[in-house]
Write a protein that binds this DNA or RNA. Structure first.
Lengths: 332, 332
DNA sequence: GAATTTCGTCGAAACGCTTCGCCTGCATGG
DNA sequence: CCATGCAGGCGAAGCGTTTCGACGAAATTC
């Protein structure tokens, strides 16, 4: 392993000159720059990350706490990680993964200076990690929007506005008995921070439009959803539209509609909050309010870098605005 | 940020004593050990990772090159990553993620000593990265089993034996016209290293049992599979058993069987190579040869650590043995 | 043309840890 | 009773960078 000292000797210059040639922080004449470069090529020199980190007090590593629980969708997590990974690489950072469940370890990578900053995913309401994260001396960004964020920066989709948008679109297309379909899991403690917000948005929009809000919790399996369709849609005809915030339910719902002869845009309209790929992957193409996972990831990273460079602005939160895409499950 | 020097002063001992107390590499009297510990608690000391890495020449970081291509199953990748992450943490390592597509960067994290060792996923036949990886001075383990591994250590499922096992089980249960169903994508260049091996195993087992091998390539969508069932199973009755190495096909296949009245264990038996969760998640419970993703991940990590501690043994490869689990798609 | 700035380079001091060699008791064995 | 060994501790030399201050020489200012 060649060191900078070797390069200096080989190029006949001083150590510091090599360093400045590499970093560009001071002017170096083209001639010496070239001699240095050729020495580097000849000796196959690569700067040593740990030495660099020790001297410069920055690792060019970013931490990401990823959940591993069975009940979070692996696809979604992977898309978050991927978007963050790609964006990091673009900014010349590498990514350090740590299990979100192992909070002790998450803290440690920050305390020991293994990473310059941290992104924490999968926040829940009253997340017990928040105080401990807020006390850290380095930048932290949460993906999620807990009611009490302890002064930490947050990034998330604006579920409240998203839900309102969904209801308004259904209403504008003539529906008046608009139910909300969601999973019972979302109300279990600890509950993801978006559960409350989409419900609130749904309720607010209903109130605003003068219709009665009805939130229905159904487990995400085929049988439960089949029963729901049979009883509440076919028999009772309770709803003429559904706002669905329950991704795994969409495919089953589609099959249940088909099986029980519920005509989709005609009898019952549907708008979901979901990523595009799940909206179009099932038996039908679902009109949806887009859940922009990659954007959230990229935004989180951008905020982190912002905090790393300018300690100026106080940490703020950013909620991504909803967009509605009509597809096959709503009328024109 | 308190440093070790602060601790030494506070505890009234020398710098090296603190270091030895922390590492346990030399005996320290209980009394001093206690004074040191209390100083550490009082000053909230945490060792600085980069300083430690510089002095000790090890980072306690492991690299993982993960693929981000759309056509690899995010679930599978996530399970690999999860198993490796968990196992790393158990051994007190952290994980550095790098995009497998960015090979330049992958090399760099090794060259700059950002990680102690590397796991590379998603190997393909004649993978262009192999020579470059083989030249690295630190341990590397490949997940996959390319024909020419350049002397690198490999870990993978034994697809050859797995395919043979599947065919033998079908044969033992009375089937004589056993086809292999797989995806055309697997033969496209670059092809994953397992494609060739499962085909070879299938062919060998057929030869051994004196039956004619027939490999059918069908795209993984519902229509293509429906057509396949109609034409080759219902009309031609070409097969009385299927060895399926094509995970996304299983669910569609099940629905096509139901729709077209093919009785599953009776008319046609099925054995798949797949992870357990996909075998039991579809419309039926598929008898399968288990694809032990977590085990592969853990094994890869174990090999890496082995190479890190004992540079003794030459790098070897490890293929995990297949196990067969009868479920609803084979006869008793 | 003297005073000041800029350019290109060097030397040395951090950065915070690990580890090697050395020294001082004090028990141990023969 | 003397050589030996080990528990317990100290000092100093790295590990490979970054960065600050200094220094001639050349370029710029008035």
């Amino acid at each position: 392993m060649a060191t900078m000292t070797d390069i200096a000797r080989e190029a006949g210059v001083s150590l510091s000159t090599v360093s400045y040639a590499l970093s560009g922080k001071r002017p170096i004449s083209p001639a010496t720059r070239e001699r240095i470069q050729s020495a580097i090529d000849r000796l196959q020199y690569h700067p040593t990350a740990s030495a660099r980190a020790l001297a410069s007090q920055r690792t060019s590593l970013l931490g990401v706490a990823v959940p591993q629980r069975e009940d979070v969708d692996a696809h979604v997590i992977m898309e978050f990680v991927s978007s963050i990974l790609t964006a990091s690489h673009e900014q010349d950072y590498d990514l350090l993964l740590v299990a979100a469940e192992d909070h002790e370890r998450t803290r440690r990578v920050m305390d020991e200076g293994k990473v310059d900053a941290l992104i924490v995913m999968d926040l829940v309401e009253d997340d017990p990690r928040i105080p401990s994260l807020a006390a850290l001396p380095r930048p932290v960004v949460l993906i999620g929007y807990p009611q009490e964020s302890g002064g930490l920066a947050c990034v998330d989709f604006d579920f409240l506005s998203g839900a309102m948008l969904a209801v308004r679109e259904l209403h504008a297309r003539g529906s008046r008995r608009i139910g909300m379909l969601t999973s019972p899991a979302a109300t279990h403690r600890p509950s993801p921070t978006y559960a409350r917000r989409s419900r609130l948005g749904y309720t607010m929009a209903c109130t605003e439009l003068g219709i009665a809000p009805t939130i229905v919790e159904v487990p995400s399996d085929a049988e439960s959803l089949g029963a729901f369709v049979r009883e509440q849609l076919v028999q009772e005809q309770r709803f003429d539209a559904l706002f669905v915030h329950q991704e795994p339910a969409l495919a089953h719902l589609g099959r249940a509609f088909a099986a029980q002869g519920v005509a989709c845009p005609e009898d019952v309209q549907i708008v979901a909050i979901s990523p595009e790929d799940v909206a179009v992957s099932g038996p039908w193409d679902v009109s949806n309010v887009e859940l922009p996972i990659s954007s959230i990831g990229r935004t989180a990273l951008a905020m982190l870098l912002e905090m790393l460079s300018g300690p100026a602005a106080p940490p703020h939160s950013r909620l991504l605005s909803p967009t509605f895409t009509p597809r096959g499950t709503t009328r024109a």
